[in-house]
Nucleic acid binder design. Structure first.
Lengths: 232, 232
DNA sequence: GGATTAGATATGTCTAGACATAATAACATA
DNA sequence: TATGTTATTATGTCTAGACATATCTAATCC
């Protein structure tokens, strides 16, 4: 008979093949769980697991009573690893260096307060620092931290540990928003990154929250040689 | 007793809370499935599902025999929706326009062949086109298609349907690689996007494969006002 | 006609129990 | 001591059956 037992993996891959090879066309209704279970000689729960994985991946759409169909407009999504600058640099085989530029309590500008949905003129901690790979500037980080969300920040010392690493260890977050864009380097950014003013830079911005409370907003500026790569 | 039945969701959220609130510290070994099942009054399979979801999300690390522990360096990943330019524009409430600039069979330059791991001097289809939102240039697309992977491409007409949309409907892919970067606009790009040469542009590059066979490489250039946003 | 109600049905979830598998520890042997 | 063997243990997966829930269709009532 069948040399291998029907596992949810086997089933998932076989169904995936039928979709990829257009044996089941986009929009088509595929057989129900019972039927598939009989076909593969597996329990319905096993088929269910296979189908759920494919649905989660976006290649199937399932509705109670209506059945399962091949996604018409497969809303595929890709993942990227939330960048941790030190690891990013060390993973390339480079040596990591860190330099604190400034760290002060400041009345945050209105733009910043708005983006964090804090009342205007909140006192935040403003940290600016530079991350380097083999002594070459890699990223300029400009960060605002909400001390109400992480009281321990008030006593934190960022002269040797970057706020990035410190926060990873001290302030878990439940939500985050990422923005990526291209911009022209300001005079200050150009100086720090050793490029010319107006040169293109790759900018990442990240806001994190714990439940409803905003923790931090960080602006990360890379020279244009930077690549953000991810696989599906 | 407990007012609600223990569902895998309830359990998942409760465990998630214990991790977020540092009741279980990073690196700590958490109770085994049997124990948790007893605690929540659920079957082991239910607890297992909750734990697997958390492991998949990167907050737990599980090993057979060794047990489950809170991830020490939570490799968190975020998702972004694979951009489909037409939908992107229409989702903003703008009107979409499309313009084909050129479409020819060409001997692909060596760089392109290399990136697609094709032998040098392969004949590929080279398509260049412009996507607009409310008549304003939104994205310049420069694409190479491997006709061996999608024979139907040879007869495709891209004058009204963008290769993006055409391929979505005709060439499913199993793997993809995304690259995002900032660059300076070339003279041609500047002209098409109505910006000045040297202005920063946001560039996305995507290569897709079906199994081992490369399908297409596309270079997507946006003016620097473009934002790529995603939530965790 | 229109609204309500009652099936019918496919997926969603849960349970209890079984066996599979990976990784380790304890033991035995050369 | 070095090495192979076996037992143990926690997670991984599967099964069969049950009930839950969303949703569509059809029948019923006013």
């Amino acid at each position: 008979m069948s040399p291998e037992r029907a596992s949810f993996r086997t089933i998932r891959d076989e169904l995936s093949r039928r979709i990829a090879e257009r044996i089941w066309l986009p929009g088509a209704l595929i057989p129900g769980e019972e039927t598939l279970a009989r076909e593969f000689g597996a329990a319905r729960a096993t088929v269910n697991r296979a189908l759920q994985e494919l649905a989660r991946a976006g290649v199937l759409e399932r509705k109670r009573r209506a059945g399962t169909r091949v996604a018409l407009h497969p809303v595929r999504e890709a993942r990227f690893i939330i960048p941790r600058v030190r690891q990013e640099i060390e993973a390339r085989g480079s040596e990591y260096q860190y330099q604190l530029l400034s760290c002060e309590d400041e009345l945050a500008p209105e733009v910043i307060c708005a983006r964090l949905s804090l009342r205007t003129a909140s006192m935040l901690i403003h940290v600016r620092c530079l991350h380097m790979a083999d002594r070459v500037p890699y990223q300029f980080e400009d960060r605002w931290i909400n001390p109400d969300a992480v009281p321990a920040t008030r006593n934190a010392d960022f002269s040797n540990v970057s706020p990035n690493e410190w926060l990873v260890g001290h302030a878990p977050f439940s939500n985050a928003e990422f923005t990526f864009m291209a911009a022209a380097a300001s005079a200050e950014e150009a100086g720090l990154l050793q490029i010319r003013q107006g040169d293109p830079v790759f900018v990442g911005e990240r806001i994190t929250w714990m439940r409803a409370e905003p923790i931090t907003l960080v602006h990360m500026v890379h020279p244009s040689s930077h690549r953000m790569v991810t696989q599906l």
